[in-house]
Simulated assay, not measured.
Amino acid sequence: MKIYVLEKSVTLSGKSWEIMHKLKQMQQHYVYINDWIADIHDQVPPAPLKRIK
């Protein structure tokens, strides 16, 4: 399995069960993919999204 973390995206390549397993692992540490990307690139994550009515 390969994981490519770019500046604004993540690409997972491999077998479907490997990808599902990795996403479940990351779900325990991060709420959003942006948090994961920011942690890898040592950036401050953007402000949380707000709902607009």
Rank of each mutant, 00 (worst) to 15 (best):
M1P: 04
M1Q: 07
K2M: 09
I3L: 10
Y4N: 12
Y4V: 15
Y4I: 15
Y4K: 11
V5D: 01
V5G: 00
V5N: 01
L6E: 10
L6Y: 03
K8Q: 06
K8F: 01
K8P: 00
K8N: 11
K8E: 06
S9A: 14
V10T: 05
L12K: 03
L12Y: 13
S13Y: 02
S13I: 08
S13A: 10
G14M: 09
G14Q: 06
G14R: 04
K15Y: 04
K15R: 14
K15A: 13
S16E: 13
S16C: 01
S16I: 13
S16Y: 08
S16K: 14
W17M: 11
W17T: 12
E18R: 03
E18P: 01
E18A: 09
E18Q: 15
E18H: 06
E18L: 10
I19A: 09
I19L: 09
I19G: 03
M20P: 01
M20E: 13
H21F: 05
H21V: 04
H21L: 08
K22T: 10
K22D: 05
L23G: 01
K24H: 11
K24P: 01
Q25A: 13
Q25I: 13
Q25P: 00
Q25F: 02
Q25C: 11
M26W: 08
M26Q: 12
M26Y: 05
M26F: 05
Q27D: 13
Q27I: 02
Q27K: 12
Q28W: 00
Q28F: 03
Y30S: 11
Y30I: 15
V31Y: 02
V31G: 09
V31S: 14
V31D: 11
Y32E: 14
Y32W: 08
Y32V: 11
I33C: 05
I33D: 01
I33P: 00
I33T: 10
N34M: 03
D35K: 06
W36E: 02
I37S: 00
I37Q: 00
I37N: 00
A38T: 08
A38Y: 02
D39I: 05
D39C: 05
D39W: 02
I40V: 15
H41A: 09
H41C: 03
H41R: 15
D42W: 01
D42H: 14
Q43T: 03
Q43H: 03
Q43K: 09
V44M: 13
V44N: 07
P46C: 03
P46L: 10
A47I: 14
A47F: 07
P48S: 12
P48N: 11
L49D: 07
L49V: 14
L49R: 13
L49C: 06
K50Q: 15
R51I: 14
R51K: 14
I52Q: 11
I52D: 10
